[in-house]
Amino acid sequence: MLRFILNYGTIAGLMIGAPTFTLFVILRENHPGGAAGMAIGYSIMLFGLSMVFLAIKRRRDAQGGVIRFWPAFGMGLAISLVASVFYILAWEAALAITQVDYIGAYINAAIAEKRAQGASAAELAQFAAEMAAFKAQYADPLFRVPMTLTEILPVGLLVSLVSAGLLSNARFLPARRVPELA
């Protein structure tokens, strides 16, 4: 079972990590931010985490077409955790290679948004101070890595829940019997 989880988790992780790393390195400081960047990132995550569904389906089929919810959910979470490690490694590698001040650009955009919303000078100063403290925290990998994990793990949790819920019903995409050749 562990080998099965590691295999599918690695495939999912590569499906997520490789595009994440490649896009960040290629686009560097011209990467899409805001809603477009999030849509691209979460689409990549969903694409890679589709391996959770495929793994649970394959395991169910190997077990005679039946799998219970909790074992399916646990397997999905384990695969998601392995994929999350690849995502974190890709993000850390991209930050190290490009030396892009991603968090600085994020903070500048957040301050500009506050300004556009009509925040007073005092509110902007307080917000800028909070963001400066956040930037200092983000420089520490012990803060950054768990924060990066919170980006992908909820998606993995959701995919695992949906996959286990659907595939614990033996009538959903039932296992096919392969006719024997004469």
Rank of each mutant, 00 (worst) to 15 (best):
A112W: 09
A83P: 02
Q63A: 14
R144T: 00
N108F: 12
R60F: 08
V145R: 10
R59T: 08
G118L: 05
L54Q: 10
R58P: 11
F73L: 11
A93N: 10
E130W: 02
Y138Q: 14
P154G: 08
A125P: 04
Y106F: 15
A110N: 11
S50T: 12
L49D: 08
V100P: 08
A128P: 05
V155Q: 09
T98P: 06
V82Y: 08
Q126K: 14
K135G: 12
M51Q: 12
F127D: 07
E123F: 10
D140W: 03
D61V: 01
L158E: 01
A62C: 01
E92I: 08
Q126N: 05
V155C: 04
A121M: 13
P146G: 08
T98L: 04
D101L: 03
L81M: 09
Q137F: 13
I107H: 03
Y102N: 13
M131C: 01
L153P: 05
A122K: 10
Y138K: 04
P146Q: 13
Q99D: 15
I111R: 10
S160V: 04
V66Q: 12
G76V: 09
L157E: 09
A112H: 00
G104C: 00
F86G: 04
R59G: 03
L142A: 12
S80F: 01
M147D: 13
D61T: 02
K135P: 03
A105Q: 15
L158P: 00
D140G: 07
I103T: 13
D140S: 12
A129T: 08
R59Q: 15
L153Q: 00
V155D: 05
L81S: 05
A109T: 14
A139K: 04
G64Q: 10
G76N: 05
Q99K: 15
G156M: 09
Q117A: 13
A129K: 10
A112D: 14
A136N: 06
A133H: 12
Q137R: 15
G76Q: 08
E92H: 01
F86Q: 03
R60T: 00
G74P: 07
